[in-house]
Write a protein that binds this DNA or RNA. Sequence first.
DNA 1: GATAAATGGAATAGCTGTTCCAGTTGACTA
DNA 2: TAGTCAACTGGAACAGCTATTCCATTTATC
Lengths: 197, 197
Amino acid sequence: MSSAPVGGRRADAVRNRHLALEAATALVSESTATLTVEAIAKRAGLGAGTVVRAFGSKDALLDAAVSDLLRPVVDRARELLARAEPDRALRTFLAELMDFQSAHHGISNELRGLAVPTTTELRAELEQAVRAMIAGAQRTGTIRTDLAPDILADLIGQTAFAIARLGTGLADAYLTVLMDGLRPPTSANAEPTVSPA
Amino acid sequence: MSSAPVGGRRADAVRNRHLALEAATALVSESTATLTVEAIAKRAGLGAGTVVRAFGSKDALLDAAVSDLLRPVVDRARELLARAEPDRALRTFLAELMDFQSAHHGISNELRGLAVPTTTELRAELEQAVRAMIAGAQRTGTIRTDLAPDILADLIGQTAFAIARLGTGLADAYLTVLMDGLRPPTSANAEPTVSPA
DNA sequence: GATAAATGGAATAGCTGTTCCAGTTGACTA
DNA sequence: TAGTCAACTGGAACAGCTATTCCATTTATC
C-alpha cells in the first residue's frame, strides 16, 4: 500500500528547500555574484533540478530569498514607528536602511523585470511605515509640510532603493543632506538665489 | 584596376551607420523597448549583420547612442557653469537633468555591466562640471561647506542617475529637498531631534 | 522490504550577439 | 552608358548561455 508521508513533503525535500534558500540569499547579498540557477545549486550542494523544483521557478526562489532579507527591515521600521519619536524614528531607520543597502547592493540590480510578488508587497509595507513616520514628524513640526507625506514617502522609498551603489561615506552624506532637506524651510534658506556674502 | 573609394566607406555604408545609430538612440530613450540587435535592426530597416558591422559590436553601438544623448547635457552644464551664478547654475542644471532622466529613463537601466567608454567619459565630465558648480556655490556661501565638494558632486552624480524612474512630480519634490539639503545648516535645523512644537 | 517521493544532471528549448556567405550595389573606368 | 569589381547587404547559421523538464536511479517512509 501507499507509504508516502500523508500530510507533507519528505524530510530531505524540506531540508534541500532550506539549503537552496540559504544559498540564494547568500548569493543575492553578494553584489558580484552571478545569479544563475547553476550557481545557486552549486553553492547549495544540490542539482539544478532540485533547486528549481523546490520553488517552482527561479523567480520564485529569488522572491523568497529577497523577502527573507527584507522582512527584518520591515519589522524594524514598524518597531521604530511604534517606539520612537517620528523624526528620530525616520532618521534611525534611514541610516539602517542605508547600511542594509550597502551590505546587499546586489538586491536592487538583480530584480529588474522579475516577478517578485512577496518582495513587492514588503516594499509597499516599508513605504507605508515610512509614510507614517513622515506624517508624524510633520505633525510635530520637524519635517516640512509644504510637500505631501505621500510625495515624501514615495521619494524616500524610490531613492533609498535606487542608491544601492553608494558607499558608506556617500551614504552618510546623503542621509545628512536628505534629512536637512526634509526640515521645514526657514527664511534663511527659502530664497537663497542671491549670494549673501 | 581597383575601383573602391580610396579614403572612406561607401555611401550606403555611411547612410546605414546613421540609420542604425538613430534607431538605437530612439530605442534607448524608450524605457519599455527591448534593446536587442534584432529590434534595432528592424527599427532601422536593416539586417542584423549590417547593424553590428557598422559599429563592431552591440556595446559599441549603444555607447555611441547614449553618448549622443548625453553630449548636449554635458555642453549645457558647461554653458551654465560659465554664464550663471554657481548656485543658480546648479539648480537649473539639476532641473534639466531630471527632465532628461524622466524623458529617457531607459538609459540608466540598460547600461549595467556594459563596456561604454565614451559614455563613462561623458559622465565624468558631467561630474566635473557639477563639482565646479558646487565649489563655486560654496565660495559664495549658498551651499554648505561642512561636506567636501567631491563628496557632494559624487553624491549628486550618483543619485541623479540612479533615480531615473522618478516621475515629473517626484522629480520636482526631489530637487526641492535636495537643494534645501545642500544649504548651509542653520541653528534652526542643525539639531532638531526634539520637537520644537 | 515495498513503494512512492525526490534527486542529479543530462537533454531541451529559447533567446541573443556575432559570423559567414551568396547575392546585390555603389564607385569608378573607358 | 556599359562594364568591373570590391564593398556591402540581409538573414541564415552558429555559438554561448540559462531556465526548465525529464528520467533512470536513489532514498525516505511505512
